[in-house]
Amino acid sequence: MGTINIQKTKSIDQVNTQERVSRLFSRSIKKESKMQALYLALSMIDLTTLEGKDSEGKVKQLCYKASHLHYKHPGLPYVAAICVYPPMVPIAKKELAGTGINVASVATAFPSGMADINAKLDEVKSVVDAGADEVDMVISRGRFLNGDYDYVSDEISQVKDACGKAHLKVILETGELVTLDNVQLASDIAMEAGADFIKTSTGKVSPAATPPVVLTMLEAIRDFQIKTGKKIGMKPAGGISTAKQAIQYLVMIKETLGDDWLSPNLFRFGASSLANDILMQIMKQSTGQYQSKDYFSID
């Protein structure tokens, strides 16, 4: 990769970004279109479990949930993928066989990214060999904040090579990048280095996906498409737990990138509790009664 020219990125207007976010988020999506949005959002979920205490049983349960969201409401879509730690990939792969649901695995010393590059590449290769369809890597934020952009860029392209056919999602961990300018720069670096998706957060750092950060990344994707013709996907993750937030993000993406991105191929939600909230909303829309968590399976 060539040297990254930081001069070319224009500075982000923070006030304007905030203003645009609040305008987009005040849109009201009701009835028919709300139902459509809820179904769409369900199909975009990367159902995630990334905990130290994850067990085989928990992953199996999550995989079952992925294709059986709510038995009382037939015709629901499947979620897009299951996102797990590397040792859980073979289990998830086996459980999801025949469903068409992808297995995504975090790799590259998730969530800190603090490991030797060779160790990271070995980890990526091993999850791909184990059958992962998608790899979620983290960038080296320490190096990035030190201004070592070449290192970050080279690392991403090496990981991309190691991925082979698997899709690569690059986690910027925007909660540690401090400014929107940094978010934009990191997005550009990741996309130029070969990311298929850029993703906001690991979910382990607060703040996770905030609306201004997501908008900044979407605009970076738009600019990259104009420049290169390539369509890069987007995945906000962490802190998205309500159907309302999900619909707000769908509005934002439609207005920023257009209809092509309203598809699980180019947009994902990284979430664990979002699915149930969307299901509760769908049941509310179809029965007229507000729902209770008691009647939905825990994932």
């Binding site: 507000y290 729902q291 008691d294």
Partner: peptide
């Protein structure tokens, strides 16, 4: 109606 039908 809503007080009495809310599932929670």
């Amino acid at each position: 109606e809503h007080f009495s039908s809310h599932m929670d």
